[in-house]
């Protein structure tokens, strides 16, 4: 028996909207730790790792570990039927091939049930080692989204270079080149506008713009984004959800042949 109750359906809606275009089908794993998902995109270039911690739910009952295969587009369709301030309850009985989403309006005067078919998904779970990254940038999530969108209109790849002074995003395309430098800055009115650099060594890596743009669909989840880079690792683009957990996107770099 699984029963998870979350007061803000809006959060789950934003989570689904941020990953449904990157990953088609995925297993949601439910354990004492929380409700989690790990999945690669179809070309195995990017990986999504989501954790919604059990203690972030209003009610969390998961009698034993369970993995539920879902089509994320269909799940997003059902969640779009909830209002952001509805309470959502996710329910599944042991051995059932369906999951139920129940939405309750804040005044309890509207209660809706949506039952969705589960699917068998044969997916490989990857071990992601805890790593020390050579460079970590924390910056405004909306600024990062703007930069990815702007550079994506000019070139297919973005070079991200971190130095002690700041982070530089560069691209090159048929029409020309573009460079954006965000200097480290903590003297800001709103803390989410700060740009913080933690760097052991300068790092410069090249990534496909379209994946970075896809990751920024998670921008509504967090004020700041954390970008972690090392030469021998995929980049991690992380959106932390206050008290609930995180959405992490891993992207393998492009390497000079």
């Amino acid at each position: 028996m699984l029963e998870l109750r979350l007061t803000q359906a809006g959060l789950l809606k934003k989570v689904l909207e941020s990953i449904k275009d990157l990953v088609t089908d995925a297993n949601f794993d439910c354990s004492a730790t929380g409700f989690s998902l790990q999945a690669m995109d179809s070309s195995h270039v990017a990986l999504v790792a989501l954790l919604l911690r059990s203690d972030g739910f209003e009610h969390y009952r998961c009698d034993h570990n369970i993995s539920m295969g879902m089509n994320l587009g269909n799940m997003a369709k059902m969640l779009r039927c909830a209002s952001d301030d509805d309470t959502v309850t996710i329910k599944a009985d042991d051995g059932s091939d369906t999951v139920t989403f129940m939405f309750e309006s804040p005044s309890q005067d509207k209660i809706s049930d949506y039952e969705m078919k589960l699917m068998d998904i044969d997916s490989e779970h990857l071990g992601i080692p805890e790593a020390e990254y050579q460079a970590i940038v924390r910056m405004s999530a909306s600024e990062f989204a703007r930069i990815c969108k702007d550079l994506g209109t000019i070139g297919d790849t973005v070079i991200i270079s971190v130095t002690k002074e700041g982070v530089q995003f560069s691209t090159k395309g048929d029409i020309g080149t573009a460079n954006i430098i965000c200097r480290k800055n903590t003297a800001v009115d709103k803390k989410e506008e700060a740009t913080v650099i933690e760097m052991a060594e300068p790092v410069s890596l090249t990534f496909a713009s379209r994946y970075l743009i896809a990751f920024t669909k998670a921008t509504p989840l967090a004020g700041q984004v954390t970008i972690s880079m090392s030469y021998d690792m995929p980049i991690v683009v992380e959106y932390k959800m206050e008290t609930m957990g995180y959405m992490r996107f891993y992207l393998a770099p492009k390497i000079e042949e």
Binding site: H44, E124, I128, A252
Partner: peptide
């Protein structure tokens, strides 16, 4: 030209 690496080049299955 650039070679696109894959996630599996870095992370292994459990």
């Amino acid at each position: 030209s650039c070679l696109q690496k894959k996630i599996l080049d870095y992370f292994e299955g459990d």
